[in-house]
């Protein structure tokens, strides 16, 4: 009787472990967002573009709007 109980417990334990692993694998696939995938992706080639433009909108602490654009910029760089 005792042995049967132990065997039953062991089988149940194995079933739980297996079940959990299946659940874990499934949820990892779903939850493994781009973030996780990003970590294992190959690093891209090492060539860089030159600086195109850099717009920086900012309000001074006294409330005055400020903007900076460098290297040409596009129409979006005009302070409205």
């Amino acid at each position: 009787m005792k042995n049967n109980l132990l065997k039953g417990l062991a089988v149940a334990a194995l079933a739980m472990i297996a079940g959990y692993n299946v659940y874990q694998a499934h949820s990892e696939t779903e939850g493994m967002s781009e973030l996780m995938l990003a970590n294992v992706e190959a690093i891209a080639n090492g060539e860089y573009a030159v600086l195109k433009w850099n717009r920086h909108d900012y309000t001074l602490d006294n409330g005055t709007p400020a903007v900076n654009c460098w290297d040409g910029g596009i129409k979006d760089c005009l302070l409205k």
Partner: peptide
């Protein structure tokens, strides 16, 4: 059986 339970 004991090993399985320990593993659990």
């Amino acid at each position: 059986v004991y090993f399985t339970l320990l593993l659990f």
